[in-house]
């Protein structure tokens, strides 16, 4: 028994499995199987839709639900106004979408529905997903930047007051730091989500394995591990919110660069 439960694999929770026999569903030669990951994307989108739709009563005196939705739109609106200014207003739908989508995905992935034999899946712990989200944000920055400023956009890589002989050195450094942005944006979210879930799963493995090894081990190792899991679960919820916020915040800062250069 102990040998069996010793096989608990903390990485198994990230495994992608096609569902409903769609293994070979393809589009233009590319596999587009409806996986557990895709299922949770759909769940996230639907839950988000229900959440926002519940706040669409448009009452003069808002109820609790409408207040909650207006809090989030107001939060993103304030974020854009503070970081980009009046020009940031037109990006609110995009930043709101990306913030709420990531937030919902992070939080839904933490649901303790394993208790009912279901497996929550956090698709933001896959860099294929966070990478695409980061590339989308970065593309908007590039498109807006070149659309608004043309080739003058490259002046972003030469900070004000740079002495002329320093430009050949500064320019590549700034260019690289700019090009690293989509990677750091995508990896940050992926790493934070993966690490948290691995940690929780490892501790859960401690609880199960120690309890299986005997009551004494269970009391000695299992109980402290379980206590720690409770604390880390709370921390993970905080991380889920913070990572969504960081993604939205950095997106808004990069958009500010594109809108106003420096």
């Amino acid at each position: 028994m102990a040998a069996e439960s010793g096989k608990i694999d903390p990485m198994h929770q990230f495994a992608i499995e096609p569902l409903f026999g769609t293994d070979h569903l393809a589009l233009g030669g590319y596999n587009i199987a409806f996986t557990n990951s895709a299922l949770w994307m759909v769940i996230t989108a639907v839950v988000l839709w229900i959440f926002v739709a519940g706040g669409m009563k448009r009452q003069l005196v808002p109820g609790r639900w409408q207040m909650a939705v207006e809090f989030f739109t107001g939060f993103i609106n304030k974020l854009m106004m503070e970081n980009v200014g009046a020009a940031g207003k037109k990006y609110v739908p995009y930043v709101f979408s990306i913030f709420m989508f990531i937030l919902m995905a992070n939080l839904l992935g933490l649901l303790p529905i394993g208790l009912f034999g279901l497996h929550p899946f956090t698709f933001t712990s896959h860099f294929t997903v966070t990478g695409v989200l980061a590339i989308m944000s970065f593309s908007i920055v590039l498109i807006v930047g070149f659309w608004k400023h043309g080739l003058h956009f490259f002046s972003l890589f030469v900070p004000h007051g740079t002495p002329l002989p320093m430009i050949p050195v500064i320019f590549p450094i700034e260019l690289v730091s700019f090009l690293v942005r989509p990677f750091s944006l995508g990896l940050r979210l992926f790493v934070a989500m993966t690490a948290g879930h691995v940690l929780l799963k490892v501790l859960a493995g401690f609880v199960i394995n120690s309890t299986n090894a005997g009551l004494g081990y269970g009391a000695l190792v299992g109980i402290p591990s379980f206590t720690l899991m409770i604390g880390i679960s709370a921390l993970e919820m905080l991380v889920a919110c913070i990572q969504a916020y960081v993604f939205a915040l950095l997106t808004s800062l990069y958009i500010n660069d594109a809108e106003h250069l420096h």
């Binding site: 589009l27 587009i32 409806f34 994307m41 839709w49 995009y94 990306i98």
Partner: peptide, 21 residues
């Protein structure tokens, strides 16, 4: 899985952006 991930992400995020956002 990359193609399936990207496809379904674009589909669901597209819904979120165009319908909700």
């Amino acid at each position: 899985t990359y193609s399936s991930q990207i496809f379904w992400l674009l589909l669901t995020f597209g819904f979120v952006f165009f319908v909700i956002g």
